[in-house]
Simulated scan of single mutants.
Amino acid sequence: MSRPARLAVEDGPEVLHGIFEVSRETVERLTTYVNLLLHWQKAQNLVAPSTLPEAWRRHVADSLQVVAMAPDAARWADLGSGAGFPGLVTAMVQMERLPGAHVHLIESNSRKAAFLRTVIRETGCPATVHASRIEDVSGELAGEIDAVSARALADLSELLAYTEPFQNHGAPAIFHKGKNFRDEVARAAHAWEFDLVERESLIDPDSRLLMISGLRPRGATGKGQTG
């Protein structure tokens, strides 16, 4: 019988310090989440196996940076949620901070959706799983959302198309992007106009968190700004 992956000695809740303040109760929920991840990973490929020894840093702390960029957003849509990063982390953090906090997790893979529901049940975090394609639910949810997140899902141009219904209602989008983020921004700017806030990742100096707002197709009426 295989054993759950062991966390690196330096990897644990302490890596969250300096990113965003969380309560002891939130840390307890996040610990339950990580334990479930390690257990389910034995049967399902939820995250890259190489990241498991640093699950707190590579996944939880990395996700926490999203909340830090939009701390006042209570209602989120997390696109292509996968194992729940950053959406479930957002739900666990915001539930104690903001009345009415809720995260909609959109994940079409039924096995991953089952994992997400298990974490929600075990932690009591305010989230709903939509086992559907993004385009099938975005129109229904768009007017209820304060912010959108996505991590390791698609090229920026495709992500902007996914988020357009939400941004039409004023919800900014926050994306994790790797070292080639500037190339993705340049390609996206051929088709879209948008305002961009760029923040260096505290987890990986070569990565960035991009907050995009004011999105509209290039050539649409009105002035836009890219950064």
Rank of each mutant, 00 (worst) to 15 (best):
E144N: 14
S138G: 06
W40A: 06
S157D: 15
P205R: 13
G224N: 02
L79H: 08
V93T: 05
H102S: 04
P217C: 13
S207M: 03
H39C: 10
A189F: 05
T118D: 10
P99Q: 12
V119P: 00
V15Y: 00
M92T: 08
A154D: 10
P205K: 12
V185H: 03
G143V: 01
T226L: 11
I106A: 02
T32S: 12
W40I: 04
P4H: 07
H39I: 11
G87D: 06
S108D: 02
S157E: 14
A127K: 03
A220E: 13
G80V: 11
L7R: 11
G18D: 10
N180R: 14
K223Q: 12
Q41L: 09
R57H: 07
I106P: 02
L64V: 08
R58E: 00
A114K: 09
Q225F: 11
A55C: 10
E122H: 12
I145A: 04
H39S: 15
L105R: 01
L160D: 03
P99F: 14
F181M: 06
L30W: 08
E54Y: 07
V34G: 07
G170D: 03
S201I: 07
A48M: 12
T51A: 07
G80N: 09
K112E: 08
A77T: 10
D62M: 01
K42M: 15
A173N: 00
M95I: 12
V148T: 06
A189Y: 01
K177R: 13
A131Y: 06
A191P: 01
S213H: 02
M95Q: 14
G80A: 09
E14D: 13
P13K: 00
I174A: 06
E122I: 11
L79P: 02
R57V: 04
T32G: 15
R133H: 13
T163G: 07
V148Y: 06
A83C: 11
D78A: 10
L209N: 03
V93N: 10
V148N: 05
E28M: 13
R24P: 00
L141E: 02
S157T: 15
S213C: 09
H59M: 02
P165A: 05
V60G: 03
I120S: 10
V137K: 10
L79C: 03
R111Y: 04
G84L: 05
R3L: 15
S63V: 04
A220F: 09
D11V: 01
D136Y: 05
T26N: 02
V9E: 12
A5R: 12
E135T: 06
E54N: 12
A48I: 13
V129A: 09
H190E: 15
R6W: 02
R3V: 14
T118R: 13
Y162I: 09
I203A: 00
T32P: 06
A8W: 00
V137Y: 05
Q167C: 09
V22L: 03
L153C: 06
M92C: 05
S23M: 06
A150M: 10
L46T: 14
L79K: 08
G139P: 08
A5M: 14
A70H: 09
R6N: 11
R75I: 13
D155N: 13
A161F: 06
L7M: 11
P86G: 07
V47W: 02
D11C: 05
S132V: 12
I212Y: 00
M211R: 13
G227R: 15
S207A: 14
N35R: 15
C125Q: 03
